[in-house]
Amino acid sequence: MKKHLVAVMLGLGLLGTSGMASADISVPHLETTGSGEITVQPDMAVFSVAVEEVKPTAQAAKQAADQAVTAFVERLLAQGLERSQIQSANISLQPQYTYPKNNAPQLKGYRASRTITVTVNELDNLNMYLDNALGDGINRINAIELKVRDEKAFQEQARQAAIQDAISKAESLAKGFGEKLDGVWQISYQSNQPRPIMMRMAMDSPNEAAMTYQDAQIIIRDQVAVTFKLED
């Protein structure tokens, strides 16, 4: 009876960290939450750039935006990227007005914008593509997301580290209370996603960002909550 009370009290004490319902477990037990973390260097990236053109007519604005996108896409293809790595959004066309004081709004032209998203499998080429965008009429870099190609393998490493952490904690707790583990009773797991590196920068500073994304790191984390049985 004494061991049963000790085990239940220990399980309740750890309930807040694991989120498991101790009241539903009828055997002596303890609960632990294991965490694992893997730090990796990115080897690929996804970046988004855009062109915005304001012209007196809708047709002129559209043509200017389309020309910039076409030039940039053709350059990327010539440099060896596959068409599947390049996604260009439909054009957005909006009238632009001025608002003189005490007068009706006046149409001053049209703003056309298009966005291009590019997947880069060779991180060493990222800065070259960004420089090319400037030369082809692209006038905004929205974001750069650094990623790792073999994400599943690193996620598995983080998961196994979390499992070992849960076991180590359980063994330490049981030993400290003079108890022994008797297998796993319940596992609670929710997949964790890696934390991507997002970068935003002005169009006049791609070279300053080059060293930043070359030296960046991605942290991949995982966590598992486990209920262990205790020997009677």
Rank of each mutant, 00 (worst) to 15 (best):
M1F: 08
K3C: 04
L10P: 12
G13R: 02
L14D: 07
T17W: 13
M20N: 05
A21H: 15
A21G: 03
V27P: 01
T32E: 00
T32S: 02
T32G: 03
G34L: 07
G34T: 08
G34E: 03
S35G: 03
G36H: 09
G36I: 05
I38G: 03
V40E: 14
Q41I: 04
P42H: 02
P42A: 01
D43W: 00
D43H: 00
M44S: 13
A45Q: 01
V46S: 03
F47M: 02
S48I: 05
S48G: 09
E52T: 10
K55L: 12
P56T: 14
P56N: 14
P56I: 09
T57I: 10
A61C: 06
A61K: 03
A61G: 09
K62D: 01
Q63E: 13
A64G: 07
A64M: 09
A64Y: 07
D66A: 11
V73M: 04
E74I: 05
R75H: 11
L76R: 09
L77N: 06
A78I: 05
Q79F: 01
G80N: 10
L81I: 08
L81N: 07
E82C: 02
R83V: 11
R83F: 10
Q87D: 04
N90H: 07
N90G: 10
Q94M: 12
Y97A: 14
Y97V: 09
Y99D: 03
Y99V: 05
Y99L: 06
N103S: 05
N103C: 03
A104E: 07
P105F: 07
G109R: 00
R111D: 08
R114H: 09
I116Q: 06
V118Q: 13
N121W: 05
E122V: 06
D124Y: 11
D124F: 07
D124P: 12
N125S: 11
L126G: 01
N127I: 00
D131E: 13
A133E: 03
L134P: 02
G137I: 14
I138E: 13
N139C: 10
I144H: 05
I144K: 04
L146T: 06
K147H: 06
V148E: 13
E151I: 03
A153V: 13
A153M: 13
Q157D: 09
R159Y: 15
R159G: 14
R159A: 14
R159I: 12
A161Y: 04
A161N: 14
I163Q: 09
I163G: 08
Q164R: 15
Q164H: 10
Q164F: 00
A166P: 05
S168Q: 15
E171L: 10
L173A: 10
L173R: 13
G176A: 14
E179V: 02
K180T: 15
L181E: 00
W185C: 00
I187E: 13
S188R: 13
Y189M: 09
Q190A: 10
S191T: 07
Q193E: 13
P194E: 12
P196R: 04
M198G: 09
R200K: 04
M203A: 07
A210E: 01
T212F: 00
Q214P: 02
A216I: 00
Q217M: 10
I219T: 15
I220L: 12
R221M: 15
V224G: 08
A225G: 14
A225F: 13
V226K: 03
K229Q: 15
L230A: 15
E231N: 12
E231S: 12
